[in-house]
Write a protein that binds this DNA or RNA. Structure first.
Lengths: 335, 335
DNA sequence: TCCGGTCGTGACAACGATTACCTAGCCGTT
DNA sequence: AACGGCTAGGTAATCGTTGTCACGACCGGA
């Protein structure tokens, strides 16, 4: 009935020794006589013993599992990043538990507390909650990705240069001669969104573009939201001649709307690359923040922490690069 | 230091009662006097007590966590399906642990055993391993999705009609007048691939199309593989006038290749819908197997099992429908 | 009044592993 | 010869929670 009816004491009994000695062998304690060790290992193999991770975790207070918390597993960016971290973790013999918060900040605390209660070895979090002070007491290394946590200055963070990326996109559009650039982005309670919007505004000011709040659409959580926002922007009395989309979810909607309305003359730069962006006509110009590279950096950073290396204070920021494919190089009509 | 220094006995002490009674309140046992319950709940709130899932799991032998095992988190199909299951599970107060096998059949056994050792309440598996007999002894409900498991006839399965979907796609292409249809698909050690290829062959025979093995390309794991396979197909002495792509990963490659080679005159039907398929020119005709619908069916089936309802013997198969968007309605040149 | 039956409660063991602490033997030294 | 130090191994406590069982109080019926 049970998957593992074999317990340590069964192994010990078969090897004619005590559970303690068997435990020593399992955990690689050198203070065991060679023949005893051999007997116990033979018993382990014969019975197919596998230690119970729950009991071990309860007693030791640690676990060999890495916890990952992201907004949504279905988001292509997080799916790719998470997949990369998991692959690397498994290669190092770590287990991985992935949990998503459905972009609900309240759920984040619940999910994170649950993982901590399970004594994960380390925690990788894409933070959405507004307060992360409770993590200051976490018994394991915590690494933030994609966004800097609020209310928790000490956290080591792997992030992308949201502000700079947005500025880069806007500067590019300004260089093509655009004066009115629409912004389509996510909810303002997410730091990523705020930083990208700030970058947009910074560059709008720097390039002396039209600073019209009617051009700014935030709060778009889904592709459908992005679609609606785009349609609204195009219907303005003074519509934008270019659009900056702040994340992949909205990008999919903006692209769909521009094609559906047959308005691919409107220039477009998206934050984050996505599948088929290069296949569309015109190809979609993106500011690329490679999710796999972020995953790799996050994983290697976490492994350093787990190995006991102390955290560095500074953020680890990944470089962004503009990939020009055509949509961002469209010029405004009156040009 | 510890996240939860608060234990049940602290709560009990504050409420001036025993741990057992406190435990009763936590677990909703009705046999507790009202004022005692109130005192304990007050203590729980005051101390911020949260039960230790590890200890609870060890003692009870069960956990309120649902385990999900899929090939790859980064695969859009699994990402979407998994996200749906997780969302529904969380809504029911279940935790979710997601693990992926990186499409490595050997890893599947390891990952599954680990989840079982953690006493998950239920297990949803997209099987890749060749032998699932060890799951017959699992102490929790096991539900397979997307593929029927090998060597484990008893498993309840939520799947899509792979064979029928492929036949539907081929019949559609045949109806447009195509005689030579290329096949681009994944590795043959995955049942899904085998079934879809069989459906392709069945319909090739039924519609009296060219049964040329040179038209069949399997073993494509990535979009890049799909791209290469497509280029090879187009370079054949007698190239296909239409292509059937067997999964989303390959589809992304096939689409990219057709656009890159400027060969969108070649008809295309893909198994599985994907983002932007409707935005491309031509829109990509797909046999849709809605990953969210599969996730919903899997979740509701699993919830029934968890509630104690016995499993039904038969598979639960989701209907597929052809979504015509243009690429599948291209006619062969000599038509 | 006596008795069986609930109700509320608590003491204690148990889940399966690890760890603190202790014992017994063996060696070499003084 | 006695002692300290080392090695191999065992006993029992422990992690935090829940199941078993027993107990006293109270209630209604005979």
């Amino acid at each position: 009935m049970k998957q593992t009816a074999v317990r340590l004491k069964d192994v010990a009994a078969l090897a004619a020794t005590s559970t303690k000695t068997a435990s020593r062998v399992i955990n690689g304690d050198p203070r065991v006589a060679e023949d005893t060790r051999v007997r116990i290992l033979a018993a382990v193999r014969e019975l197919g013993y596998r230690p119970d991770p729950t009991a071990r975790s309860l007693r030791k207070g640690t676990d060999d599992t890495l916890g990952i918390v992201v907004d949504s597993i279905a988001d292509p960016f997080f799916a790719s990043m998470t997949g990369t971290i998991e692959r690397l973790a498994i290669a190092r013999g770590l287990r991985v538990m992935i949990a998503s918060t459905g972009r609900d900040p309240r759920l984040e605390t619940t999910v994170v507390d649950d993982l901590l209660a399970r004594r994960v070895a380390g925690l990788v979090i894409a933070p959405t909650a507004t307060d992360h002070s409770h993590l200051a007491q976490a018994a394991c290394p915590v690494l933030f990705v994609d966004r800097r946590p609020d209310g928790f200055a000490a956290g080591e963070t792997v992030l992308v240069d949201d502000n700079g990326g947005a500025r880069q996109a806007l500067a590019h559009l300004a260089a093509q001669g655009h004066r009115r650039v629409g912004y389509v982005g996510g909810k303002m309670d997410v730091a990523t969104t705020r930083n990208r919007l700030q970058g947009y505004r910074d560059q709008v000011a720097a390039s002396a573009l039209d600073a019209d709040e009617a051009l700014v659409r935030t709060g778009c959580n889904t592709a459908d939201d992005g679609r609606s926002a785009t349609v609204e922007l195009l219907a303005l009395p003074e519509p934008p001649t270019a659009i900056f989309s702040s994340n992949t979810r909205t990008s999919l909607g903006v692209v769909a709307a521009l094609h559906a309305c047959d308005r691919t003359d409107v220039a477009l730069v998206c934050f984050g690359d996505f599948a088929l962006a290069d296949v569309l006509d015109p190809g979609v110009t993106v500011v690329d923040h490679d999710p796999e590279a972020i995953g790799e950096l996050a994983a290697s950073t976490m492994f350093e922490r787990l190995a006991g290396k102390p955290a560095v204070d500074s953020d680890r920021t990944l470089p962004l690069r503009l990939i020009m494919r055509g949509s961002g190089e469209r010029r405004p009509p009156h040009d």
